[in-house]
Design a protein around this nucleic acid. Structure first.
Lengths: 115, 115
DNA sequence: ACCTTTCATTGACAATCGTCGATGATTGGG
DNA sequence: CCCAATCATCGACGATTGTCAATGAAAGGT
């Protein structure tokens, strides 16, 4: 390739190593960020942990509420965010609401962090 | 166990399955949430991806800047947040700044998401 | 010595977030 | 039929966030 632009060439050589590939697409970056954002709050991390650790993989709001020292409305709000992010599911049985992990959601996220 | 409190017992049986254990401690929840929060923005996810995909594991700001359609100051701000969160390191060489992944930081996070 | 380049930092602004109290919607029981 | 319990939703508030334009700091080249 004759007539390459020498100015650009030397500039690149002196400073920048090109991004070699594997850079995430905009759409995927947004989707990933949305899930991480949902986990970017201590209360929601604790909620996920409680649900994951609860027997049968399900937890009732009455459990989650009383061990969090937050108003009931606030806890409900956090749970709603986790559902909207695709990390939890909500099932109403009678008067009670039960939350469970979306199967595979957290492992799928973990995958994106592996080398 | 005689003399268990029947009211509490039946209440628990009708509603709540107890958190069986393994619930994350407050301090750990906060630490985890801080890292996830740092990844809870599309721009920062792309930055991490670019650094991870760059040759030699290092990326210069001049690279990162020009492919992001954001002001230089904004990109620098995001990079600073990722450094503060313990996900990236910054090394100045001459006029240029190079960012690299903190070794093991992302795999450690991935570990916390595994079943 | 000056000027340019590279990058971090500051100040400012709108937008979003976490929280609460209060209200609303369902369900179950007397 | 009404009442109590469970939980979601709403309105409001202070605090934090993402962004930019502008400025500051340090290094290199001429």
């Amino acid at each position: 390739m004759p007539h390459a632009l020498p100015v650009l060439d030397t500039a690149a050589a002196s400073c920048c190593s090109p991004i070699t590939g594997g850079v995430i697409a905009d759409h995927d970056a947004a989707a990933l960020a949305a899930k991480f954002k949902a986990m970017g709050d201590p209360t929601r991390v604790k909620l996920l942990s409680m649900v994951a650790a609860s027997g049968g993989g399900e937890a009732c709001v009455c459990d989650l509420n009383e061990s969090l020292d937050l108003s009931q409305g606030t806890v409900s709000h956090h749970l709603g965010l986790l559902v909207k992010a695709g990390l939890l599911t909500r099932t109403k049985r009678g008067t009670w609401s039960y939350y469970a992990l979306v199967p595979g959601a957290l492992p799928a996220l973990a995958e994106t962090l592996q080398v």
